[in-house]
Amino acid sequence: MDSIGPDLEGKVAIVTGAGSRPGEGVGNGRAAAILLARAGAKLVLADAVAEWAEETRRLIEAEGGEAVVVAADVTKPEECRRIVEAATGRWGRLDALVNNVGIGGPPGTAEEVDPEAWAQGMLVNVTSMMLMAKYAVPAMRAAGGGAIVNIGSVAGLRGGHPNLLYPTSKGAVVNMTRAMAVHHAPDRIRVNCICPGMVYTPMVQRGGMSPEMREARRKRSILQVEGSGWDVGAAVAFLCSGNARWMTGAIVPVDAGATAIAALPSEMR
């Protein structure tokens, strides 16, 4: 991971949430996995729904890449261990981990949210990333270093979300990234966070998205261009590569500039 360049030939990466729901476009995890494979990495594709990850594997192998699928629940320590062992058992090393699993979680303010649903949401969005790192870090240390990329959200950087769980959990991911970067720097493991903005993915479609809502989302940025899972995946591939060898503890918004401004260009005229 020391040499400058995009090449990941001979490296091994895990992507959690590597499948993609049926629908228009591509999920962040699938896009990241495909782009890592194009850079030369071998992939462990972890997902709770094996069928979705198998499609990602098929797409990677159609381009000449190599990948294996592990159906797993990343909220369970023993299954996180099994995901890491799939990498080290087959290829003898682990160089990158992309913590991509996340859910919208329960609705409501502090007054309204169901406490049990809150605990489950924090387990999925935050604890799962800790558990994956728990088993990935020793394997990366043995390989001489590596890169961890945690997928957060612009909701973790600013207020205004209608529900409490999602921005709280994503804010935790942001600061967990900074703490992990310090903890694992002696092992030459870089830890960074990507905060996607209003990207359009199959998961977003599933939540219900009218054409009017989609257009409004597009306009909530400087560039006024709709983002996709490929935009997030490109940032993941960069942070895992030697091009980012001098980056750790970084929080990288991939949001068409939405978090860079207090008002939209049309509102400044």
Rank of each mutant, 00 (worst) to 15 (best):
Val191Cys: 03
Leu59Thr: 06
Pro186Leu: 07
Pro6Ile: 00
Asp114Lys: 12
Pro211Gln: 11
Met247Gly: 02
Met213Trp: 11
Ile34Ser: 04
Glu116Asn: 14
Gly208Ser: 07
Arg38Met: 03
Met209Tyr: 07
Ala155Asn: 09
Glu116Ile: 10
Asp47Tyr: 14
Arg30Ile: 07
Arg38Tyr: 01
Leu223Asn: 07
Ala155Ser: 13
Asp114Gln: 11
Asp255Ser: 00
Val15Trp: 01
Val12Thr: 10
Asp255Pro: 01
Glu9Asp: 15
Gly65Val: 08
Val70Ile: 15
Lys42Leu: 11
Gly17Ile: 10
Met132Leu: 08
Ile194Cys: 04
Ser20Ala: 10
Gly102Asn: 03
Pro265Phe: 11
Leu94His: 07
Met198Cys: 08
Val232Ser: 01
Met198Phe: 14
Glu116His: 14
Pro22Ser: 06
Arg158Tyr: 04
His183Trp: 10
Met130Asn: 13
Asn125Glu: 12
Ala143Ile: 09
Ala143Lys: 11
Val174Met: 04
Arg220Gln: 14
Glu112Ala: 15
Ala71Pro: 09
Ala244Phe: 03
Asn100Val: 08
Val232Ile: 13
Ser210Asp: 05
Pro211Leu: 12
Leu131Ile: 00
Ala37Arg: 00
Gly40Met: 00
Ala258Ser: 14
Asn99Cys: 09
Ala263Val: 12
Asn125Ala: 10
Ala32Met: 05
Val84Pro: 01
Thr16Ala: 13
Pro167Trp: 07
Val15Ile: 07
Ala87His: 10
Asp7Gly: 03
Trp91Lys: 02
Lys134Asn: 03
Val69Tyr: 06
Val84Thr: 03
Thr75Tyr: 13
Val199Phe: 15
Ile60His: 03
His183Phe: 10
Leu164Gly: 06
Arg245Ile: 07
Pro186Ala: 05
Val154Ser: 08
Val113Lys: 12
Cys195Thr: 06
Val74Glu: 07
Glu212Trp: 05
Val68Thr: 09
Val149Lys: 01
Ala87Met: 15
Gly121Arg: 07
Ala133Cys: 10
Lys76Thr: 05
Asn163Ile: 07
Pro162Asp: 00
Met203Arg: 04
Cys195Gln: 06
Gly92Trp: 15
Gly10Ile: 14
Asn192Lys: 09
Glu51Ile: 08
